[in-house]
Simulated assay, not measured.
Amino acid sequence: MPLIASKYKPPLLFKNGHLSTIYAGVFRKVDALVQKRERITLPDSDFLDLDWSFGNLPSKKVTIILHGLEGNAQRPYIAGSAKQFNLHNIDVCAVNFRGCSGEANRLFRSYHSGATEDLEAVIQHILKTKDYQEIYLHGFSLGGNLALKYLGERQILHPAIKGAVAVSVPCDLHDSLQQLLLPKNALYAHRFKKRLLEKLHIKQELFPDKISITDISKIKNLKDFDDVYTSRAHGFKNALDYYTKASCLPFLKNISIPTLIINSKNDSFLGKECYPYKEAAENDHLFLEIPKYGGHVGFFGKDNTSYTEKRAVNFLFERNLKH
């Protein structure tokens, strides 16, 4: 589909991409969301914790929300999105990726940008144990890449899956990694690396035969982390092989349900390859919105409701009414 003209116009202060990103990630608070946790066992014996929230009335619709790198289901952008869906009487299943729910996962492997097998396990669990007729996907950053890859890599989707919205998506992981290694993103990269290394030290204690303290000492940046851990733990040759195979960009042409990507122009995490103009132009099911502002998952809105939270509900409802 042609590029969608964005209506996002933030206050002057939030036209700054870094300020938008930092405010949304560090200072924003979302209260009054009641979540109920459910733990499911995965086919490989590991587990995922799902945090459910519900509308006021029984619903036949559910949105699966996927967080970003080192996020969880309590982050403000997840909680804010869940509240908006619940207000429109759509239930929410907010997924905590492996090791992101406050407890280390059982295996040496963890989560990564292309681990669509875990999303498939969540969808199958919902289909087998719940009574929903319509399933929607909503992913942010890493979770957005995962959702889009899932939709594009499967020849047949379950008919209950009706639509998706992905926000601040690193469609080309290598391109995004190169941006994160630039000085402009040093603060974010340091924070990500710190959290990832904290978890990796726990992995080393649990699995000393798989990774050593010497291995960890070689990690100086995020690419090193993916070379030393992500690629080895998840069956890739190296970091570049991981970025190539896990990126959603090659799969976008195959998406067959209404899907919206919202990537801001001033997102410092995204390089030019992360804006899939060509793929959207050639796929009638793929909608691309590129607001001038917004930073990375930082779309400030009035009344503590972000632009993308309202936009996701709006897009999915509009498309649903037409199908």
Rank of each mutant, 00 (worst) to 15 (best):
N89M: 04
L288G: 01
A79V: 15
P159R: 01
T63R: 01
H285N: 14
D31S: 15
G17S: 08
F85P: 00
L12W: 13
T63I: 13
L50M: 12
I123A: 08
I40D: 09
I40V: 14
V228N: 05
I213K: 13
I219A: 10
H88D: 12
G55L: 09
L177Y: 05
D227R: 02
N238C: 10
L240N: 13
L87H: 14
P258Q: 12
N266M: 07
I261H: 08
K302F: 15
H323K: 12
G144I: 10
K245Y: 07
G295S: 12
G143I: 11
L148E: 04
S59T: 15
P250H: 11
L3D: 12
G99H: 03
I123R: 05
R28E: 13
H296G: 04
F108K: 07
F269N: 02
E38P: 02
I216W: 09
Q178P: 01
I255H: 00
T116A: 02
L157M: 12
K203T: 00
K278I: 12
Y23P: 03
K310M: 14
K7W: 00
N314I: 00
E309Y: 03
K128S: 15
L13A: 14
Q133P: 00
Y293L: 06
S176N: 13
S113Q: 04
I40K: 04
N105Q: 08
R106C: 03
E38F: 01
L146R: 11
G295I: 08
T308F: 15
A233Y: 04
T230A: 04
P10A: 10
E198G: 02
K128C: 06
A160V: 09
Q178F: 07
P258C: 06
Y150M: 13
A189C: 06
S231C: 04
I211D: 04
F97H: 12
I262Y: 02
K15T: 14
I135D: 02
Y136G: 07
N266C: 05
V34G: 00
A189N: 07
